[in-house]
Amino acid sequence: MKPFSYVRPADAKAAIAAAGTEGASFLAGGTTLIDLMRLEVMTPSAVVDLGRLAMTAIERAGDGVRIGAMARNSDVAMHPLVVERYPLLSQALLAGASQQVRNMATVGGNLVQRTRCPYFRDLAVPCNKRAPGSGCSALDGYTRSHAILGTSPSCIATHPSDMCVALAALDAVVHTRHGSRERAIPIGEFHTLPGEHPEVENVLGQGELITHVELPASPFAAHARYVKVRDRAAFAFALAAAAVGLDIADGRIRGARVALGGVATKPWRSAEAEQALVGQPPARATFERAAAAAIVDPKPRRDNAFKVALAQRTIVRALELAWGSP
């Protein structure tokens, strides 16, 4: 680890002030930051420890739920409000990482989780995300874990989060504070595509603090499912994951949500798939049409071509399970 100054502010205001300087980084659960600092993939000049900030509440907010940025993944996953109203989020969180990591990782931290691309983690090789302009080692390298959607010639790294896929499906809103300015960022606008600047992964400014996430009321609790396909039965990143919700009334799909993980450079919401579902009867044929619609212009590489079919099938499976078919 590169030496850094350690700051443990007592409140959000002090935290934002401390993190205002270039190179400063917030420390929440540490499961990404400490991991990458030890590799010196991340080398913050200052670490601003949010451990003393009281931002852990999970509470009702109007018809929805408000989750503090420092709420632990495991606490969120097991919270009655979440289990009851947003089972999709609970399932996604429990599908991620290990119990230890879930006990440490926070909602705010998970929103800014970094990719697991092996080239990003290896200082000895070029990586545009880590060292802008150095090149992408993955493009013609080993690409089994990489993205097929949202890629650019600069970067094909997969967004690794499970939680964010559920948040994307649930229309979460990320609330931040920056100085005296507060803003609410819809989850779909929070993460950015790599384009020519894969080093930029979200719209947060330097020192902008995520305070909480709000989930609007959801009609999908009765028919929601997170399905994750991976190489091991637990503790592995997704080869493909789908978070879906169906609002079914009178034998028709009134509303639908479809989001993908493990196959895209950001949590991937598919309006095309949702469109293909709405108004249709819940049936395998409908689900297959939606799944086909979800994968628009994929850019598979040598080792991840299977993800095109796998992503579609994962959507179909998630929709079937959400619907309640065997």
Binding site: R8, L27, G30, T31, I34, D49, Q100, N103
Partner: peptide
């Protein structure tokens, strides 16, 4: 592993299992 990938360093923090390798001592 020193990266939260194996669990050999698991300790309890306020009763919950955490990876000591991903925890700064000062934190």
């Amino acid at each position: 592993c020193d990266h939260g990938q194996c669990g050999a360093c698991t300790v309890l923090r306020d009763g919950h299992a955490v990876n000591a390798c991903l925890t700064l001592a000062v934190a």
